[in-house]
């Protein structure tokens, strides 16, 4: 009984002493992650920000159970991660849609892999397609859709699994600025309605602040957590993103993150400018 109570106070995702290195192209060992400790609360929206090469995608893939790691421990709701699981869904930067499959089949793909019967998975897929605003496109193939629409399919595929944890790897990095803003607002309103735990990788300060409850700032070589910055902006945020972006708090946090990121870039510059 006592251990049950303890479980409820625990974070949903617990990462302890995570270390990951691999052998790079020139046979040198690259330390992608070093001693990463992180707790993600139930229904928290966590954004992870850092320069390229800081291991943020590696971190996400270890949580997804897609790649092994060398040291430490990852637990989801107390259970150690041993591989991919139905409690976690991933959204990919390059969409990773099956080009031969229709929108409906792409959205239903995860359900099919998990053995959900045809009638049920198509019904669930259709309702998710409606949620991301793609009704009427069920029989189209990815090649017939714009980048923004393709990522809506990717998002619907992930949400169709009803995951506890949504893992997003720079999901809006490959679409144009205007589409990105629309997708951000849509993701916010979907998440405000259907709360779940989100780990969202990005290289945009604005995106990290707009979406996140906290911003995890990572630094490179080796990849490690440099700071965790809380974002005390009020929710729901989807109703008036414009006003939020003009608020003093938003501007302040974004500026602070940029200061920190610029310091990191300076550190790794081959020759520092004097003065």
């Amino acid at each position: 009984m006592g251990s049950d109570d303890y479980g409820k106070e625990r974070a949903l995702i617990e990462i302890r002493g995570l270390g990951k290195s691999f052998v790079g192209q020139d046979n040198e060992t690259v330390e992608a992650l070093r001693d990463v400790n992180l707790d993600v609360g139930e229904n928290e929206f966590l954004t992870v920000l850092g320069p390229s090469g800081c291991g943020k995608t590696t971190l996400l893939k270890t949580i997804a159970g897609l790649i092994p790691w060398n040291d430490g421990d990852i637990r989801i709701d107390g259970t150690p991660v041993r591989g991919p699981g139905p409690d976690r869904s991933m959204v990919f930067q390059n969409f990773a849609l099956l080009p031969w499959a229709t929108v409906l089949d792409n959205v239903a793909f995860g359900l099919r892999m998990r053995g959900v019967g045809r009638a049920e998975r198509e019904e669930r897929a259709r309702s998710l397609i409606a949620m991301v605003g793609l009704s009427g496109f069920e029989t189209k193939r990815p090649g017939e859709l714009s980048g923004g629409m393709q990522q809506r399919v990717g998002l619907a595929r992930a949400l169709a699994m009803r995951p506890r944890v949504l893992l997003m790897d720079e999901p809006f990095g490959a679409v144009d600025e205007q589409t990105r803003r629309l997708l951000q607002e849509e993701l916010l309103s979907i998440w405000e309605e259907h709360r779940m735990t989100v780990v969202f990788i990005t290289h945009s300060m604005e995106e990290a602040v707009l979406l996140g409850d906290r911003v995890v700032l990572m630094s490179a070589r080796p990849g490690r957590i440099s700071e965790i910055v809380p974002v005390p902006l009020e929710r729901p945020r989807s109703s008036d993103v414009g006003a939020l972006e003009r608020s003093g708090q938003y501007v302040e946090i974004t500026a602070y993150l940029w200061d920190r990121l610029r310091d990191m870039h300076e550190e790794h510059r081959p020759s520092k400018v004097a003065g």
Partner: peptide
């Protein structure tokens, strides 16, 4: 590779 990774992440 990313298609195979996607499939594995969904439990294939």
């Amino acid at each position: 590779v990313h298609l195979v990774e996607m499939a594995r992440s969904y439990g294939a």
